[in-house]
Amino acid sequence: MAYRLPKKGLDQTLRAWAEQSKVFAPQKREGYAQFLPWKAGVELLLDEPHNTRFPPKAFLLPQSETLLTYNRKLNQLETPTLQISPRIIFGIRPCDAHAVALLDTVFATQENPDPYWRARREQTILIGVGCNQPATTCFCTSVGSSPFDHAGLDAIFTDIGEAYLVETFTERGEALFAGLPQAEANDEGQARSIQQQAEAGLTPAFATDNLKDHLDQIFDSSLWNEFAQSCLGCGICTFLCPTCFCFDIVDEAQRDERVRNWDTCMFRIYSLEASGHNPRPSRAERTRQRLMHKFSYWIEHANQFGCTGCGRCVRYCPVGLDIRAMLRKAAATPSEVVHAN
């Protein structure tokens, strides 16, 4: 269904939601945008051409979370019962919601669902705001998404000037807007043309035909050493990435807790074995893992790229390694030249 919500009415809508749920919306924190609890009177950053700096995946997969507690004396384990209250994430960008849909293929599978993810996901409604003016670092259309992608969303807003056109995709999304007047044909027409214009403004960032096969073929290329030369091996490109999901489980013995923390293939201790052996001993193998995972292994796993083109890794890499340029270089690396390592 499509509704019309005048911008003046947004505050009232959020206020009504906040009576039932926790509502989070992008606001200024230091020099960046972050999802913070909505309160009457706060200023929202909805027009910024970019994402929140920290990815909203953290609402569903917190950077650190206690999986269980134990009592060594009594020899007992206790799994915390997750009491997640309903929450609405308002103003999420389509690339970040698309990333949540991708992560569902990891954490919300039929066979092996992650109870912590599922408990949060069930209680979390995602209301997107599409991107009228994608930023220069955005490349969603190159990776199978778009500035008005619906994946993962319960509803999406399109800014049509004085009002938003609200399109709902799920029952729970629908329920949030039930009282609003339905959109008129010319609202929808206006929204479509804004959406098309936004999409048309994005040019392909790299070639995706055969990308997976090509990457597989250059697995042993010296190209990875070239990237690794400047790469710092920090956690920025993966911790800020909305689709990266690696974690490490650690016992915090001083508090008798077993904790799950985000981990990243870019860290030197990632996949380090107790023997001291590391199957990815240098930054070259680690950089390769990041690109391979996103553009080859994800295809095997879900037939989609594990990147939604949000551009965070491009903007915040401290040494300017731009994943788009890396993939262009990969595409230009001939597959027959296999370097012995």
Binding site: T136, T137, Q229, S230, V314, R315, C317, P318, V319, G320, L321, D322, R324, A325
Partner: peptide, 12 residues
């Protein structure tokens, strides 16, 4: 020279 605006890269 940079690939991403504002970020010249360390190079070898």
């Amino acid at each position: 020279k940079e690939d991403a605006p504002l970020h010249p890269q360390p190079a070898f």
